[in-house]
Every structure is written in C-alpha cells, then in structure tokens.
Write a protein that binds this DNA or RNA. Structure first.
Lengths: 210, 210
DNA sequence: CCCCTCATGACACTCCGTGCCATGATGCAA
DNA sequence: TTGCATCATGGCACGGAGTGTCATGAGGGG
C-alpha cells in the first residue's frame, strides 16, 4: 500500500469505515493556503471548508505543516526504500568506491523524483514550503527517516560513523536545495537538479575492512 | 558591538534605561529547561522565575526557541564576518581553486568556533537542540544569514548560482552535524569535527571568467 | 522643574495542539 | 434479529505560544 500515509490506522475490516478522504482534505487546505495565505488560514477554517470537525482534521494531519509536507511522504519513502534495498542486498555486490557510493545516493534521489504523483501539485507544495520559513525548517524532521537510512547505507559500505553523519547531512541539505531550485523554476524534470546537487558531495575513503 | 543580540533597540541615550539583563534571563531559562524539561517549562514560568513580566520576556526573546538559539548568534555572526571579509576583499587575492575555496569555508567555520564564550554552556545549548526536533529544525532559520553570506562568497569566486546554493546547503548541513557530534561527546575542541565535516564537500569548477 | 522618551507589564485575544468523552455507524457472533 | 465489540467522528475544555493595545513609571534632557 504505497499511499497509506496520513491514514490513522492500518486498513482494518471491523468497525465503522472511514468516510474522510485525506487527499481531498489536503487539497482543500492547499487551495485555501494559495488563496488566503498560510498563516491567515486557520485549522478551524480548513476543517469547516472540508466539511469535517477540527478534531477529525487533527486526527489525519497532526499538525498544520503536515497538510503541506504529508504529500511529500511518498517521495522520501521511495527514496528511502532504494537505500534500504541497497544496504540489505549487502555490500557484497556493492561498489565501495566513491563513484559507486555516490551512484547509490543518486539512484535513491532519482527514485524519489519518480515517485511524485503530480508534478504541478508537488511544485506548489514546495513553493509554499520555500516561502514559509517554518515549513522549510520542517525539512529536518520530514527527511529524518531518509537521514537514518542513508546513514546505515553508508556505514554498511565501510564509511565511519562520524563521516557517515557528515555525508548524510550534506546529502540531505543538497538534495533539498535541489528540490527548492526545481520548484522555483518551470522545468518539468527535477532529476538534473538532483544530479547537479549530488556533485558537491565527496565521499571519504571507506575503512579497508568494513 | 559584538553582543547586541536580543537587545530590543540600539543603545539610545534618551528615555528610561533598560533594567533587564537578557543573558541572565537566558541563563534562568536554560537552567529551568535542564531541570524540568523544555516543553514542561512555560514562558510564563520562565518570566516569573526571572522576576520579569511575560510580555517583557517576549520583547527580548521573540520565541521560546530564541532562548536557546540566541546564544549561538555570536558564533554564526563571527563565522559570517569571515566570509564577508573574504568576499569584499575581492577575488583578486582569492585562491579560486577548490582547495582555496574550501580553505575559506574552513576558516569561517573555525572562526565561529573561536567566538564561543563558554564551551560548556554552548555544549548544553547544543545538546538541548539535539534532543528537541523543533529546536534542531530551527537550524535552517538560525543559519540563514550564514547561508546567504556563503552563497555570495562562492558566487564572487566564480561558482554558478545553482552550484553555490548546493554547496551552501551541504556546507551548513555538514557543519551543523559537526557541532551536534561535538556536543554529544566530551572533547573540548570542536575544530577537528568541523574539519572532518568539511571533508565531505566537493567544490564544482568555477567559471573561467567570473 | 517639567516634559519627553522609552522600558515595563497588565489585559485580552487568536490560534495551535491535545486530552476526555459522548455519539454513531458498521460488521460479527449468538 | 439482537446484542456487542470496534472504530470513525466530533463536541468541549484546557494549556500554552505568540501578538496586539494601552496604562504606568522611571529615567534623562531642556
């Protein structure tokens, strides 16, 4: 189930079925943000316009920022899965050279780009994130799972713990900036931005015996 | 005036002089955070313990996070000044090779480390930041001036606008992670952490004619 | 000595986020 | 069919962040 984000519970069969469509609610919220501005739109107002209660809104979106960031979750999830697979596949077939490691990180970033359902909606989300510092800051939390997976991936390939932390921080910072630059323009393909961003990374030499 | 942060206005001579010492207030807040936890300490409580009104507290510290991040301002300011000087000195004497540019970024980071008034207090601040996601996220805003200065510095040296953005993002991400790793340990000198972190950066080739 | 300036803080307000709990809808079992 | 367990919904109240407005008062300068 690739899109069970924001779903409060795993799809059980018992009990009353859900009637609220989180994607529709997020769509209403994004429209209101575009029309009236992010801060001038209250959760109360979003709930009312979506025809649900404020408490129900908070059940699907624990915070106001999740209405914007929630839609980016498939991207980081797809990207993280690639790193997870590359790691658990073992470093046996892994290329532990700098080029090989960078190729892994690049593949993950590109996989994220491929997981975007709607380019224009995603661009709208990112532009909103770019203009609200409180939303941009959230990248640190929103990308946390990605950070952890990248860290494990690098350490599996023999990178020291400290160096892995630095590479991850630089990796996430650069790719997020790539998304921001893509969103600011009109190009349809974000991949070239991601590739250029990855060009600022240098992978320290791995330990001889990982 | 190196430490007029959190001062509400430039030191005017007319009118009633200020009686509140922002550093003392921040000290009270940090102690309360350490004793009772960050979220369980309300602004109301901090104000009361500091012997001032809640509104006055907000005048000196616009947000709760500023009570923690405010003390880091001299660090980013000192670091930013080095980049500013290196830029306005002109690229005439600047080494536009990758090594030269990296040396500039490294000098800025080290200058920040040299600007720390009290290592143990700073370590306490950073540990608090590390354990509260909402505070760690703030790094994106707190380092914004540094980001802009680094961007101008790089562009002055012939780096393209897009590449400068990526290098800055990676630079800030890696150095912040370095501070986090230093704070998590017990070493007194943060410089080796910063130097290692800078090792994950690769500077794209500058334009032939900047 | 008066007045102008500015720090202080009381009051009220909006809004985010979170508990607690009543209500209602659904499917399952007796 | 009837009861029951399960879960979605949402009303109510609360703590707390952050912001306006305004009154007070304590300086210093004319």
């Amino acid at each position: 189930m690739p899109s069970d984000h924001t779903k409060p519970a795993g799809a059980r069969s018992a009990g009353r079925p859900a009637t609220i469509d989180p994607d529709a609610v997020a769509g209403v919220a994004l429209r209101l943000f575009a029309e009236n501005g992010y801060e001038r739109t209250s959760m109360e107002n979003i709930a009312r316009k979506a025809g649900i209660g404020r408490k129900s809104l908070y059940r699907y979106f624990p915070s106001k920022a999740d209405l914007v960031w929630g839609g980016m979750e498939p991207v980081v999830e797809a990207s993280g899965q690639v790193l997870e697979n590359a790691r658990t596949a073992g470093p046996a077939d892994g290329d532990t050279s700098e080029g090989g490691i960078l190729a892994g990180l690049r593949a993950a970033a590109i996989a994220g780009a491929s997981a975007i359902p709607d380019l224009s909606v995603t661009r709208g989300r990112l532009r909103l994130i770019a203009e609200r510092p409180e939303l941009a800051s959230r990248s640190y939390d929103a990308l946390a799972p990605q950070r952890e997976r990248a860290r494990l991936y690098l350490m599996e390939l023999g990178i020291s713990e400290s160096a892995a932390g630095y590479v991850c921080a630089a990796y996430l910072g650069a790719t997020f900036e790539a998304w921001m630059q893509w969103a600011a323009g009109t190009d349809s393909d974000p991949v070239p931005y991601l590739v250029e961003a990855l060009g600022v990374l240098r992978i320290p030499a791995a330990r001889p015996c990982g």
